[in-house]
Design a protein around this nucleic acid. Sequence first.
DNA 1: CTAGGGTTAG
Length: 775
Amino acid sequence: MRSALSRPSLKHVLRSCSGAQALVQIHALMLVTGSLYYPHSSGHLISAYARIGDVAAAHSVFRTASNPNISTWNALIIAHSRRGSLDQVLRLYRLLVSQGRPRPDSSTFTVTLKACAQLFDLRSGREVITHASDLGYSHDVFVCSSVLNMYAKCGKMDDAMRVFDEMPKKDIVSWTTMITGFVNAGNPVEAIEVYRKMQAEGVEGDGIVMVGLLQACAAFGDMGIGQSVHGYMLRHHIETDVVVETCLVDMYAKNGFLETAHIVFEKMTSKNVVSWSALISGYAQNGFASDALWMLIKMQEFGLCPDSVALVSAILACSHIGFLKLGKSIHGFIMKRFDFDHILGTAVIDMYSKCGSLLSARALFNRVCSRDLISWNTMIASYGIHGHGKEALSTFLEMSKTEFKPDHATFASLLSAFSHSGLVEEGRHWFNLMRQEYRIGPSDKHYVCMVDLLARAGHVEEAHELIQSMPDEPGVAVWVALLSGCHNHKKLELGQYAAGKVLELCPDDLGIYSLVSNVFAVAKNWDKVVEVRRRMKNMGTRKVPGYSLVEVEGKLHAFRMEDRSHPQYEKIMDLLKRLDFEMRKLGYKPKTEFVFHDLDEEVKERMLGNHSEKLAIAFGLLTTSPGTRILETARHRSTSSSRLQQILSGGRSIWPELKLEHEALNENAEKVHLSSSSASGTTILTVLQALSFLVASLQEKKISQILVVLFLKALQGIPGSQRLQIRKAYDSPQHLPSAHACFNRLDLPECTSEEQLRRRLLLAINEANEGFGIG
DNA sequence: CTAGGGTTAG
């Protein structure tokens, strides 16, 4: 018996012990035979107790050890480290140090440093480092790697680099630590640089190095390097596992190479929730909402249940296409199955806001207890999107009373809220405060907001001066903001200048070109108009056709331009033709009609049908009752039109098991959502809300002439800078700044006269310069 | 030393 428990095999016996009962028996035997008092025995016993999760027993073994040696100490410290009791690790380490014996060894320092890293406790970390080097461990490769890791986790890459350079011998772990350290510090270039040095020293990378390297490539955004790393891995037969392969999928997906990501994903030998999520989030983040949702379905068919990370991507997809119904279902699902962490909460708040339900967003914001800076930013942005500048500001002030300090995104949201609400003075004020008090240097985004704010309010010269004061070369968005303001306020000279700047920068967006074209058209600069139209045509043939989606009663319907496949296509075209006819009877002439010379019936039908938003809106109007709000949401892309149709209008419930939760939530404020891949913006939101409520509040026949005017105006494909004009149309006072306000305005008694409305609307339309038939 | 998630414009 005694020989069976002699030291060489004791470790193995204890290790094979999986049950508490067996362990207690061996413990007793060790006490009786006295083998517990052999040098390493109590350490092994402590480890064994720790392995079955009995830390109390581990502690009692430790207490009974008369003179615990360092391996006994280490066993207990490691036990705490394993179960995440990091404070205990530090407590024991300090106790050990204060006693002055036994002498800590390499393992002691490694484990303690790891705890410091996990606690981001730089002070204790430095304490440990000093002690370790006093005891002569400053060249120990294990200790050094832990030091590197500790510095890296605490964001001290400078210190890590210094230690790393002084290491006489570097192993694969220390190289890896430096690479992942730089990646997590947001410095992929340095990470790649370290890898190059490692190669130069003849060290062959393994899978774990590749994980860091692939993350660096993903963050760096250069797929040339990424692909060469992938190729290297294949050529050198580097062993990959599910983690490495997931990194590959993620790298391709994050950078928009979704076909490649999908191929790599398909070839994976084993897939888990993380691998699926990498692909799903790739689709969602790149605007392929239906593909993201499709993969979510596939993942469930595969037998995996989505976790909170996968759901965040699904929520993101819902906000992109305005799929409120599914978004709400997922919200219900989360409430039942998960705790709301702050990321999940923020995603759902944002979803409600983007899907038009500001009240739900705020209600959830109030309920979610774990808020962070991004949650606050999201809430401020939500008010901004809905044109509630004052509320955005009061939310900002509310946030100022908390521990969170506003960052660049906070100010971007705040400034855009002012811009959407016409709060020019506030905009100027806070833009200055941002620079002077908060010491935040304005970025391109902030300039876009400010230029938009000023130009929208007619201060185009001031906006231009602001652009000229920019430290860096302004991006397209800045010029587009100026252009849009000039267009609205008929500032033709500056407008054409801005248009020229936009053309120089070659944006990849048809909607912007239509705005450019309109500005030249108003200025009667026909050569330019022809040139821009030509460029648009070239783009149009290269690009995948856009989609518009409309959600009716929780089901999404997809339309492509000139798409005749919809069962109700005839009815839709009838409505569009009728509207077009009524519109012209009112004296409406699109100003850029010269582009389409012969308006025979067939051409007209094409013009009406080649705008996917028109088809979607007409369908929405045909299938919903008057007074239904139609909301426009963000753009949508899809890798496959058949997939889109399958998901969106196949009559198939995307998530059957969620049905009950959805009904439990039952919030029936909105019915119809429109989303579109083309660039027309908030005009549609504004006008369609107006349209739908006009029908209700005037108790009209299905469609009146005014509605026709409004409707066609809604379909002009003008970028979303028309709010001011719409506002003018309702002759609303300055304190009604937003689309939302405009929409509310329609309920006011003075607007109940159809004649009054008609005059105002015609005025607005004559002032506007529409483009026509932009797909 | 190892993978996936939320905010910022028109």
